[in-house]
């Protein structure tokens, strides 16, 4: 039964992920923590952080949610549920996009959904901030990373690892 729930929840999240992974984080947190009580806020935060340090999309964290709840079969079910629907949809649309070229609503959809996606990404950022910005040092780490990235291109993965190390050493 848990596998069925995992499958349904992550399929839904997959289809709703307009704006990408960050955009769907608040809903993912709401579902896994508040609705189904699969994880605590702290566990959700830790799993998110592990996704941050691994190469590739951070949303691979969903595999760990599946594994945490139902072992290797949980990982497999969540991985397929979260990634497969979007892959199939993109494949389908890619082949029809040429035909949509002259459809005037195509532009309207792109223009209209862009600010909605940005709003959702802001909400995802806010959700992680509420979980992790809890004392002066975390405020400082967040601000310093923000300032450095505005200033110049630094591999964000390195900054994130430094942030973790700084907090571990100083606290």
């Amino acid at each position: 039964m848990r596998l069925v729930h995992l499958f349904l929840v992550f399929t839904l999240l997959s289809v709703l992920a307009v704006g990408g992974g960050t955009a769907v984080l608040p809903e993912m947190q709401h579902m896994t923590v508040d609705t189904f009580h699969w994880l605590t806020d702290a566990q959700f935060r830790s799993i998110y952080s592990i996704g941050q340090v691994a190469p590739g999309p951070n949303m691979l964290m969903v595999l760990l949610i599946g594994y945490h709840l139902a072992g290797w079969s949980g990982m497999t079910v969540v991985g397929l549920a979260f990634f497969l629907p979007d892959c199939l949809l993109t494949l389908f649309v890619n082949r029809w996009w040429v035909h949509l070229g002259s459809w005037p609503w195509r532009v309207s959809i792109q223009r209209g959904l862009a600010p909605v996606a940005i709003g959702l990404m802001l909400s995802g950022t806010y959700a992680i901030a509420k979980l992790s910005i809890i004392d002066p040092l975390t405020v400082l780490i967040g601000l310093v990373v923000f300032a450095i990235l505005l200033w110049r291109h630094v591999n964000p993965g390195i900054l994130v690892l430094i942030g973790g190390t700084v907090y571990m050493v100083l606290m």
Binding site: L122, T138, L161
Partner: peptide
């Protein structure tokens, strides 16, 4: 140590997510 390391990563990620958004 593991808990604190992961918390620091999440805090740094907030800075990153803000920039990207």
């Amino acid at each position: 140590n593991v808990k604190q390391f992961l918390l620091g990563i999440a805090a740094a990620a907030v800075g990153l997510l803000t920039t990207v958004t």
